[in-house]
């Protein structure tokens, strides 16, 4: 498959806002959290969106591809089955680990940017790819802490990953912004280092500054600074798709629509 063709602007489908997503103007595609869906009984709303011809992309959060253990094939299989059920052109998860030492962090933890971690990640990604019916895109996460002794920058790490696995990239600009705020990484350098021709699509989300920490909550409005990172990205490459993620504190339909419109305005600015 040669890239993903023009997805447009989309929003993360969540059961709480299913009717809102259906009603919103200008939703070209949606993403569903794969773990929340079950084969055999897709939500009515998702079926309806599919009938309208809206692409539905499964997004996984639990593969723990960056974890030390071999990837859990049952989880991979579920993701693949969801992809087939919704006829998705692509699936995604994160460059992270969620489980280790018998514990579950409940969140997407950054991996150390070492050769060890990269080798393990590559092995896990390859195994997942072999067991998936469609291409896999991997997303950069937001980190609140930095592993010591990193051998590569985040951009270099992801570039290596793409090089060795031929995976796609899902770039979360809010996470880039969060990392810039919290651990001092440079979004522009990241964008310089990653292979932009392997960009599948982009995530945009809101967050909140809390003291000296920026929290990527997906429960607050998208900051202008995050749209600024999107702008920076769009000045380098035309992203096949840009998707708004909102997971909590859902505002009114109008407010969500205006966030989508703001995203579209940034994307369109570079199209002219």
């Amino acid at each position: 498959m040669a890239g993903i063709t023009d997805l447009g602007v989309g929003i993360g489908w969540r059961s709480e806002i299913d009717l809102t997503v259906e009603r919103l103007p200008g939703v070209d595609f949606v993403e569903v959290v794969a773990e929340n869906l079950h084969i055999g009984h897709l939500p009515e709303s998702v079926t309806l969106l599919l009938e309208r011809g809206i692409p539905v992309l499964p997004h996984a959060v639990s593969l723990s591809l960056g974890g030390a253990d071999e990837v859990d094939l049952k989880r991979v299989q579920h993701l693949g089955e969801i992809a087939e059920a919704v006829g998705a052109p692509m699936v995604s998860d994160h460059v992270c680990f969620v489980r280790a030492g018998g514990l579950d962090s409940g969140h997407l933890m950054p991996v150390p940017r070492t050769k060890d971690a990269l080798d393990v990640l590559v092995a896990n990604v390859r195994l997942a790819q072999r067991n998936l019916p469609v291409p896999l895109a991997l997303e950069n996460v937001a980190a609140l802490l930095e592993w010591p002794d990193g051998e590569l920058s985040e951009g270099q790490f992801l570039a290596e990953l793409v090089e060795r696995t031929d995976c796609w990239l899902l770039v979360d600009v809010a996470n880039l912004y969060a990392n810039a705020r919290n651990i001092g990484t440079d979004p522009e350098r990241f964008l310089d280092e990653i292979p932009l021709e392997r960009l599948a699509y982009v995530h945009v989300a809101g967050g909140e500054q809390h003291g000296d920490v920026y929290h990527d909550t997906h429960a607050h409005a998208v900051l202008p600074e995050v749209l600024g990172v999107l702008d920076e990205l769009c000045s380098r490459v035309r992203p096949p798709g840009v998707l708004l993620e909102r997971d909590d504190n859902y505002p009114s339909d109008t407010e969500i629509a205006s966030e989508l419109a703001a995203i579209r305005a940034v994307v369109d600015k570079h199209r002219g």
Binding site: G67, A68, D69, E70, F97, A100, G101, G102, L103, S105, M109, V111, P112, K115, D116, A117, D119, V120, A123, W147
Partner: peptide, 17 residues
Amino acid sequence: LSAARKRLAAQQAELLN
């Protein structure tokens, strides 16, 4: 690779702990 997995497992377990 399995040695790398072991080293990484120890690091990650220590962090989550």
